[in-house]
Simulated scan of single mutants.
Amino acid sequence: MIGWLAVAVLVAGVAGGGLLSFLGWPRLPSAGQFDVGQLLDLLKIALSVVAGFGGVVLLAVNYRKQRVAEDEHDLAVQRAEREVVQRFNERFGSAAEQLANESPAVRLAGVYAMAGLADDWADKRQVCVDVLCGYFRITRDGDGEFEVREAILRVIRDRTRPSADRSWSALDFDFTGVNIENADFARLKFDGEVLFDGAEFVGGVASFAGAEFGGLLSFHGARFSADEANFGGITVSSGKAEFVGAEFAGNKVDFADGFLEYSSVAFFRCRFASPVIDLSQLSLHVGRVVFDRCDFADLELNLSVSLDYQPILLVPVLAEGCRFERCRIDLSRGGHGIKLADCVLDTVTVFGDPVAHPQLHKWQNNQLRGGTSLPSRYSSANSAPRPGTPAPAG
Rank of each mutant, 00 (worst) to 15 (best):
I156H: 00
Q367A: 10
V305G: 00
F255I: 05
R87C: 02
E147N: 10
C327D: 09
I329P: 02
R82L: 15
V317M: 12
L10S: 14
G210H: 08
P26E: 00
V77E: 10
P392C: 15
G110R: 02
Y262I: 00
Q33F: 10
H285R: 12
V50P: 01
V155Q: 00
A96K: 15
P162F: 05
F267Y: 03
V129R: 03
N179L: 11
L10Y: 02
P390T: 13
P311T: 14
E150P: 02
R166C: 09
R154P: 01
F146H: 11
R323S: 09
A341R: 14
D41T: 04
F208I: 11
R79Y: 06
R137Q: 14
G258V: 03
F351E: 00
I329M: 02
A183F: 02
D119V: 15
D197A: 14
D298N: 14
E261K: 11
Q310C: 04
E102I: 09
V85W: 01
D278F: 12
A164C: 12
K362M: 05
C343A: 07
P29W: 05
F268R: 10
C322M: 09
V84E: 13
I277V: 14
V56G: 12
L108D: 08
V350I: 12
V155L: 02
V148S: 05
D74M: 03
A241F: 07
L340C: 11
F22R: 13
L28Y: 07
N365R: 15
M114Q: 05
P311V: 14
V205Q: 13
Q126K: 10
Q78T: 11
A199R: 06
D35V: 04
P316D: 08
R137P: 11
F248H: 04
P275K: 13
S306K: 15
G221Y: 09
A60I: 08
C133P: 02
D346G: 04
A384V: 04
A164D: 06
F190R: 08
A229W: 01
F136I: 11
A319M: 15
L368Y: 05
G250S: 04
V68K: 12
G13I: 13
L360I: 00
R140S: 12
P387V: 04
G177C: 03
S48C: 08
D330V: 11
F185L: 15
A273P: 02
L40E: 03
P392V: 08
V148Y: 02
N89W: 08
R377S: 11
L318K: 12
P26H: 05
A105P: 08
L171C: 06
G210I: 07
W121S: 07
N251G: 15
G215N: 00
F291W: 10
F22P: 01
G18W: 13
R82W: 06
V317K: 08
G335K: 02
D41K: 01
A273Q: 09
D254Y: 03
W4A: 15
D172V: 02
